[in-house]
Design a protein around this nucleic acid. Structure first.
Lengths: 107, 107
DNA sequence: TCGATACTTAAGCGCATGCTTCACCAACCG
DNA sequence: CGGTTGGTGAAGCATGCGCTTAAGTATCGA
């Protein structure tokens, strides 16, 4: 999932898909690389559950799948807030105690 | 940044750092791999701005840096909400229009 | 029916990543 | 002082990743 978002080209594709569904070649157009490569990236995105796609006739149409994005977002925000809460408690502790009680390296 | 979070071991280290600062060997302890490897992962995390560390005596102490996490979170939530807004507009459109006005392939 | 178009699949190549080992240095501790 | 602890740096290696080329297949449009 983070793996999938790690590649700039893949993020670019995600960006594009935010603005609406697109065919494979539409995704490929701005990307200065082979269609083949794009398809491979697409496979990664689908594997990570970030994108869903279906083929109608000869064109495959891709859509963003927000579930996965939501999961990633949650993961990050959980850790962040966990750490920040800890940080706040520390701040509170320092605030209601004398300046620095542990002068290990005082001269 | 996403690259840095892409590795499970690195995420594990981040997880550990959420619960408070730690030395390199403390980070390494649960990770069934060489100290050397851990240091390399740490370098990646620092490179991504996810972790800050300073050496006192012979122990290096590491802390989480929330700025970067915040950035990643923002990136995701921006795309997600962009897409969801689009999705809602589409829903509204479909709601206030007859079932399917564009029968291109009608016989 | 013929030739574009829109992919699909497989093979291969070069570079990045994740690890290990080994040698090393700088505190700290008895 | 000497050994242990905590970390550093370089070299090497296996695997994975991103990409390309090349050779299909299936659909559409004239």
């Amino acid at each position: 999932m983070f793996q999938a978002l790690a590649d700039p080209n893949r993020r670019h594709m995600v960006q594009r898909l935010c603005e609406g569904p697109a065919s494979v070649s539409e995704l490929a157009a701005p990307l200065q690389m082979t269609l083949s490569a794009v398809v491979q990236h697409l496979a990664v995105l689908e594997g990570a559950g970030l994108v869903r796609s279906q083929k109608i006739g000869r064109v495959r149409t891709c859509q963003l799948e927000t579930q996965a994005l939501r999961a990633a977002e949650r993961w990050i925000s959980e850790r962040r807030s966990l750490w920040e809460r800890r940080f706040d408690r520390l701040g509170a502790f320092l605030a209601e105690n004398p300046e620095d009680p542990l002068e290990k390296n005082s001269k």
